[in-house]
Amino acid sequence: MDAIRVEALTKRYGTTQAVGGISFRVRPGQTVGLLGGNGAGKSTTIAMLLAILVPTSGQIEILGHDMARDRFRALKRMNFSSPYIALPGRLTVRENLRVYGHLYSVRHTDRRIAELTEELTLGDFLDRPAGELSAGQKTRVALAKSLINRPEVLLLDEPTASLDPDTGDMVRSWLERYRRASGCSMLLASHNMAEVERLCDHVLMLQKGRIVDEGSPEALRGRYDRDTMEDVFLDIARGRGHGAQTQMTAETQS
């Protein structure tokens, strides 16, 4: 069974098409990157996977649950982290984690908070209001919140945005360790190409709401004859490398 299965997913706002019939799968334990420029449809896709946005058409299954009919069974086994959605700033980090421990019905919440405090080194600011933390500290807290229920599927929207290189590296290392230890499946939307190369087994390149190419980072670099994913991204964003896509399509069909 796939961790995430998406079929012909479409979202339209009036005459504007935000996501245009995309299909993809995330296997158990796999990390898939969602790459694309601003307005490519990454956040819309993630919002539909989280069931906070209803698709115009198409189907989403997460951990075997149809998100249109049975979303709450899936939601308790998954989680989401984004630096763009805040936690209540007047509550301390500990209180915030307790709130989400209750919302996800986590057993022994305080014990789980103690584990996350040690793993993500939250100890220095555990009892400080979340609104008073630095960007790096907030990101670690957001990550702790997203791991409070030991998710089997984790959706990450630019998890290291606005972090200094050291903290960003710490977060990426932690995500790698968590995936190895738990077998969690991850879907990562990011503009950080180095991060995508490091964390992702498979990358979906989105443009104007459609998947225009996909493959492992190595395969994509080879197909576009580029040394970095950043150059691959630029080729696709600027409409270069069409031949490579055609070749890929032919390979896939054969």
Binding site: F72, L87, L103
Partner: peptide
């Protein structure tokens, strides 16, 4: 409104809270 003011509403609605 407190959930809106603290920009926490999305977190609440992606949790299993009905």
């Amino acid at each position: 409104l407190e959930e809106i003011w603290s920009r926490n509403l999305a977190h609440v609605f992606i949790s299993p809270l009905r």
